[in-house]
């Protein structure tokens, strides 16, 4: 194997290696975490983050950025904790309406050629306003079926790991392998070329934002199932975490380079990083900064690998 191929391989495996390293450090600090129960506790909050990350990933695939995903996930959780319990049909309708609105925003961005960052930043305030209207103070409760689902303990591995595995497989197939995924990434790589081949960029964006809306819906509901109550700000930090996870997974902000499996691993890494820092007895005040340092370290390694790859024969 040439050194170039080795570097390519290292770059590919970087998200997995990061996660493995972090897990090893955690098990070293806290050997009791190395059990079904321990892993469940460590990882179950990763499920909603994984879904939010994939939502962000499809948006990044077409060179857009979604700054409203956190607020949207919060809104879904709020609707789930109130309307979905009180008047289920109205709850379902509200959730479907939110997905349709998401798709409509995609259409607006494509139609007027607006910068997605601005539009979704504005949209995040709309979601927040709606969430506060639905649930003015933290509270409500999750529908029983949701809490049961998220509390399920499947054989062999905790639910979070099963979900991560299935979701990465589906994501890999849909985005990396399928013929539709090629068009999606092509639109990120060279939109004009895709349009000139007869594809509708409008249809692509609508599909992307609708998919993001559905994944955000899954994120909000799984979060609600875990926390069992809602809050208008419950997932506001998901916006930045999801972007960080996608990038940690090997993706670039532009150019249609996204990796679903990497993104899922990235989401799990960032979830675990928080637990690890707690085990290290680092005060929560410093945790966000420490998480940032982990991110910078991984990205620095990636940059070094990429440079080595350019130089290698």
């Amino acid at each position: 194997m040439t050194s170039r191929r080795l570097l390519v391989l290292a770059e590919r495996l970087l998200p997995a290696l990061t996660l493995a390293l972090l897990l090893a450090a955690i098990f070293h600090q806290q050997p009791r975490a190395m059990s079904y129960f321990g892993l469940n506790l460590l990882l179950n909050l990763a499920v909603p983050i994984v879904f939010a990350t994939l939502a962000q990933m499809v948006v990044i695939a077409v060179n857009d950025l979604d700054l409203s995903i956190g607020a949207y996930v919060s809104l879904v959780a709020c609707i789930g904790a109130t309307l979905l319990v009180q008047t289920p049909w109205l709850g379902v309708l509200a959730l479907l309406g939110a997905v349709v609105l998401y798709a409509a925003v995609g259409a607006l961005i494509a139609w007027r050629g607006l910068p997605s960052i601005v539009v979704t930043l504005g949209l995040s305030f709309v979601w927040l306003g709606l969430a506060v209207t639905v649930l003015p103070t933290p509270g409500g409760h999750a529908p029983a079926w949701l809490a049961t689902t998220m509390g399920w303990k499947p054989p062999l591995a905790p639910l979070a790991l099963w979900i991560a595995a299935v979701v990465s497989l589906v994501g890999w197939f849909a985005v990396t392998r399928s013929s539709l995924g090629v068009v999606l990434r092509g639109a990120g790589g060279n939109a004009r070329s895709v349009a000139r081949a007869g594809w509708s960029l409008m249809a692509i964006r609508v599909a992307v934002y609708a998919t993001a809306g559905i994944l955000g819906l899954l994120s909000g509901l799984s979060l609600l199932g875990l926390t069992t109550s809602g809050d208008a700000n419950i997932a506001s930090r998901y916006t930045l975490i999801s972007i960080a996870s996608v990038i940690l997974g090997g993706a670039s902000f532009v150019g249609g380079r996204v990796f679903p499996v990497g993104a899922v691993l990235g989401a799990m890494t960032l979830t675990l990083a928080a637990s690890f820092l707690t085990f290290m007895r680092i005060s929560p005040d410093w945790q966000v900064g420490a998480q940032g340092l982990i991110l910078i370290a991984v990205l620095a390694i990636r940059a070094v690998l990429a440079r080595g790859k350019e130089a290698a024969p």
Partner: peptide
């Protein structure tokens, strides 16, 4: 040049031929 730089050579054909699927 109007190819998608992030796609492979084979994948370029998919962009040009909508009937390539399945």
């Amino acid at each position: 040049l109007s190819l998608c730089p992030n796609l492979t050579v084979a994948e370029q054909a998919r962009i040009a031929h909508p009937s390539l699927h399945g």
